[in-house]
């Protein structure tokens, strides 16, 4: 825990991008996944990352959080280089991000609350156990689980609850950066919509920067500020959805203008109309 980092957290005016990736190359045994990939994530935004299966979305996330050592390129997270970080610095950065893995990746022998307490205990052992328990409880509540879920073991939870519990653990240290790997995959539409809202709310309340891998078009339309498209081994485009739609790339066009893309867009249009109160639909349709 390097004290240097603390004053910089205290200055909210800082606008340097929390994630800067330049010239990233990854390959597995001759199979090139990323070739000269560059991407910048801005502070306070929700960046959605999309791409076909096997385009290396998860590998990109693993590279950013230091689980995958890239062949080449530089990755800077919160002003620190991940690719050639010293061991001490590593620890400091890790206390400033939270990661939600696809299946939740909860520790199966610990209860939900104990899972949330793991990072607290690891980084801030000076916190009294009462406060640690209280923190665990309100993080569980913040992630949208009923508080009595705190004492349950991961095996007793449904898939959706496990994701929320994983989110509670990711939020344990009040991170600045949140990595989400397909948070709504495998959830029912109602659960997925609720999870989207939850992420948006948390981002508003806590001022998070969110790096979000998803296949869920509704999520993209609903909560993402910008979307990065992974194809051809690099990020081919970053921008808001209207900006992407204006691009003439076959994959992007197919992705957003396919039947699912159109459905998501019209749902979004309907929702925003409802929000603004401009109901010019024929009577009864919006009900």
């Amino acid at each position: 825990m390097n004290g240097k980092a603390q004053p910089s957290i205290a200055s909210p005016a800082r606008s340097d991008p929390p994630i800067v990736i330049e010239g990233l190359c990854n390959s597995f045994g001759g199979n090139v996944i990323h070739d000269n990939l560059s991407l910048t994530v801005d502070r306070g935004e929700i960046l959605g990352v999309v791409g076909g299966s096997g385009t290396g979305k998860s590998v990109l996330m693993r590279s950013i959080i230091g689980l995958q050592i890239p062949d080449e390129g530089s990755i800077e997270v919160l002003g620190r280089s991940i690719t050639d970080a010293e061991e001490d610095e590593d620890i400091d950065i890790r206390s400033r991000w939270g990661v939600l893995f696809q299946g939740g990746a909860l520790f199966s022998t610990l209860t939900v609350a104990e899972n949330v307490e793991v990072p607290l205990l690891e980084f801030y052992p000076e916190i009294a156990s009462e406060l640690r328990h209280e923190i665990a409880r309100f993080k569980v509540m913040l992630s949208g689980l009923p508080e009595d879920a705190s004492s349950k073991f991961p095996a007793e939870l449904s898939g959706g609850m496990r994701k929320r519990a994983g989110l509670a653990r990711a939020l344990a240290l009040d991170p600045e950066l949140l990595f989400l790997d397909e948070p709504t995959a495998g959830l029912d539409p109602i659960g997925a919509a609720a999870f989207d809202r939850l992420i948006k709310e948390l981002q508003d309340t806590l001022g998070l920067t969110v790096f979000l891998i998803t296949h869920d078009l509704d999520t993209l339309y609903e909560i993402c500020d910008r979307v990065a498209v992974l194809a051809e081994k690099r990020v081919i485009a970053v921008g808001t959805i209207p900006e992407l739609l204006a691009l003439d790339h076959p994959w992007i066009q197919e992705y957003f203008n396919g039947p699912r893309g159109r459905a998501a867009r019209s749902a979004q249009a309907g929702a925003s109309q409802k929000r603004t109160g401009k109901m010019d639909n024929p009577a009864g349709r919006g009900a």
């Binding site: 209860t111 609350a113 307490e117 409880r137 509540m141 913040l142 508080e147 705190s150 004492s151 309340t205």
Partner: peptide, 17 residues
């Protein structure tokens, strides 16, 4: 804003069964 978000927690739930 933060207090509004966390004040719903009763802080009494069990940590372990």
């Amino acid at each position: 804003r933060l207090i509004a978000a966390i004040r719903k927690s009763k802080g009494t739930a069990d940590i372990r069964p």
